[in-house]
Design a protein around this nucleic acid. Structure first.
Length: 642
DNA sequence: GGGAGAGACGTTTTT
DNA sequence: CGTCTCTCCC
């Protein structure tokens, strides 16, 4: 199919696909078809003979990357098989892994898992003011990098931060690892310091989706990769919801100033949503005063008005039961479960909803699924597998060696590390010597005991006949803590066969950190508003629309300006949520939006969700309707009691 | 190094 | 309300 198939030459999508400007910005509201336009642009490039390897489509998640690939294959575009959408993170890791880059950066791109951070924190807490403070300092370190603060004039590190950073980097060097938040900055530093690097000329065309979600470091990497490349960025400042990773709406707004002469294109026709929802969304987002250029969405009359329902319940329990009953009724009336999307800003609401639906025998999938690595037993097995693959993996060894200690045996481990650094031996070799008595160090009896267990466990794994039995041993059938990871490991084995332990570990890691979202959806989906970005559904339900949850209360100690920014981001989050609704009148799916909230919830729940109740009554917190409900304006129906 | 008791704090999310 | 962290003491 030719790239321009069915595209009128005067349409914005045609302009986007065909623009030959070396710099193009596309601002595209929710449901306006930006993925479609971007796909056509890639198709045009490929059809014009641009080599697939010279095109870099950057997407925010792996799901989006696969989506692009699948659709291009569906169009039968020549060369699209070689075209691979990547996330910036995976691109950075790949580039850092190249030999010449490794030599230049003197850091090892082995990213630390969440749980592997714990021994690091314990090792640094003594010198840097306790666990909590170390966590704060670490976040500040990553935040400074994400914002490229080092580049800002007048930036100076406080003595405390400088001392912490020195120790942190020394720990990471010794353990041959990297913080996840360092991966992009390390690539940035490398590219910045090496203007002649081949990487800076690797691509002729760069396309970035969801640009508003990139932080400064990520934007900087794109800049450094585009010496010789045409760049097309696509996004929407009104959907910027990732300030916690230091992205903010000004990124895409300011891009035009840094790229003078760029094409500035836009998509404003909301093809997805029913008109009533579009009007509500416009009314809501108008309350964001910091938008330099308000860009209302155009409603498409052909979509029809749609159905909108706003319901207040007396208690959270009734709200949960009410939503579950509503969903069950819809399904009984022939709505496919896969058409229903339930959004809740907190798992404390999402999980009871999930349970209620399951109790009603509704096929439901929850996407809150906390990491398969949350249980200690799972972490232990995972670390063992890593050592099974590579005895010299220092992070896994450090974790396992401290596992039974109070603070990860920080006191003893300090002496092990000192010995390693003085003698040039690796931690594995030093522990082997400690174990045999060839070396003795004070306070290390706990570590030696753990090390004996590690060695024994690895020996047991080594004598097993194949990887299937290794998986059985590490993640035994019937053990609760490792049930999910076992399932993933088994499906990985099915794919790769019973050969290479290294491949098993690598595939297992990606499967855990970037879970698949099935393309064929047959279940009701329950998830957070963040996760819903990029999705759409004929029936969208947002539960828990109360002050304190949506919008969430700002943290203490913020300036008035920061509080205002926080509120605007919360509003964008709600904006993203309500614009998931998809109208398909010809398929007799008008597009249904349901917003629910309740008057009270148990104080315990309120506290655990982060609401500090202003008033309570008999152990119940009194709740108030989200201000965003009011801000939906006149197009919204009057709320009803449930 | 480890246990008992007092005090702080609580969420959402990506790689 | 429950869990995690810190401090104090043995």
């Amino acid at each position: 199919m030719p790239w321009s198939d069915g595209l009128g030459p005067a349409t914005p999508a045609y302009e986007i696909a065909s623009s030959a400007n070396a710099r193009v910005r596309v601002v595209a509201g929710p449901g306006t078809g930006k993925s479609f336009a971007m796909k056509r642009r890639v198709a045009r490039l490929l059809e014009n003979g641009v080599d697939a390897s010279a095109i870099l489509p950057v997407t925010f998640t792996r799901v989006a990357a696969e989506d692009l690939h699948r659709e291009l294959v569906g169009m039968g575009v020549p060369g699209c098989d070689d075209l691979e959408g990547v996330t910036l993170h995976s691109l950075a890791l790949r580039m850092l892994m190249r030999n010449h880059v490794l030599g230049a950066t003197s850091r090892v791109p082995r990213a630390l898992n969440m749980f592997e951070l714990e021994p690091l924190i314990c090792d640094l807490m003594g010198a840097h003011g306790g666990k909590k403070h170390v966590k704060v300092l670490r976040m500040a370190y990553e935040a400074a990098w994400a914002r490229l603060q080092h580049q800002q004039p007048g930036y100076a590190l406080a003595a405390e931060d400088a001392a912490f950073q020195a120790d942190l980097i020394s720990w990471l060097r010794f353990h041959e690892a990297m913080l996840i938040g360092e991966v992009i900055p390390q690539l940035y530093q490398y590219l910045d310091a090496n203007p002649a690097a081949v990487e800076r000329q690797e691509f002729a065309h760069i396309l970035v989706d969801e640009y508003q979600d990139l932080n400064r470091a990520e934007q900087g990497v794109i800049d450094l990769l585009s010496d010789t490349a045409d760049v097309c960025i696509v996004g929407d400042d009104d959907q910027s919801i990732y300030s916690f990773k230091h992205a903010h709406p000004d990124g895409i707004r300011d891009w035009l100033n840094a790229n003078v002469g760029a094409d500035d294109l836009g998509l404003d026709d909301c093809r997805r949503c029913p008109t009533q929802v579009v009007e509500m969304a416009n009314s809501l987002i108008q309350n964001n005063a910091m938008r330099p250029v308000p860009r209302p969405l155009n409603p498409m009359p052909a979509n029809g008005a749609g159905d909108v329902l706003i319901v207040q319940y007396r208690t959270l329990a009734l709200e949960v039961a009410g939503v579950a009953a509503l969903v069950s009724d819809m399904i009984a009336n022939g709505v496919p479960p896969g058409d229903i999307l339930v959004l809740a800003q907190s798992r404390a609401i999402g999980t009871p909803l999930y349970e209620a639906l399951v109790a009603n025998a509704v096929p439901t999938k929850s996407y809150y699924a906390e990491s398969e690595l949350s249980a200690m037993d799972a972490q232990r097995a995972f670390a063992l597998l890593k050592l099974f693959v590579d005895r010299q993996d220092r992070v896994a060894l450090r974790w396992l060696a401290g596992i039974d200690g109070n603070n990860w045996h920080a006191a003893g481990y300090r002496r092990v590390r000192e010995h390693c650094e003085n003698t040039g031996t690796s931690p594995w070799d030093t522990m082997t010597q400690l174990e045999s008595g060839a070396v003795s160090l004070p306070y290390t009896s706990g570590i030696v005991a753990s090390f004996r267990d590690i060695v024994r466990a690895l020996e047991e794994l080594e004598v097993l006949p194949g990887l299937a039995s290794v998986v059985d041993q590490l993640f035994p059938d019937g053990q609760d803590a490792t049930r999910d990871i076992r399932e993933i490991a088994l499906s990985v084995l099915e794919e790769i066969g019973d050969n290479d332990r290294e491949v098993l570990f690598r595939e297992l890691s990606t499967a855990i950190s970037q879970p698949e979202i099935p393309i064929e959806i047959e279940d009701v989906r329950i998830m957070s508003l963040h996760k819903s970005k990029g999705l759409s559904a004929p029936v969208t339900i947002i539960a828990g629309c109360v002050q304190g949850l949506l919008p969430r209360a700002p943290e203490n100690g913020l300036t008035p300006a920061e509080r205002a920014q926080h509120l605007e981001e919360q509003r964008r989050l709600f904006y993203v949520g309500i614009t998931r609704v998809k109208a398909a009148p010809q398929a007799r799916k008008p597009g249904t939006l349901v917003l629910t909230y309740s008057q009270e919830m148990p104080v315990r729940d309120a506290l655990s969700v982060g609401i500090t109740p202003a008033q309570q009554r008999y152990g119940s917190a009194i709740l108030h309707a989200s201000q965003f409900i009011r801000e939906l304006g006149l197009a919204a129906p009057r709320p009803v009691a449930g």
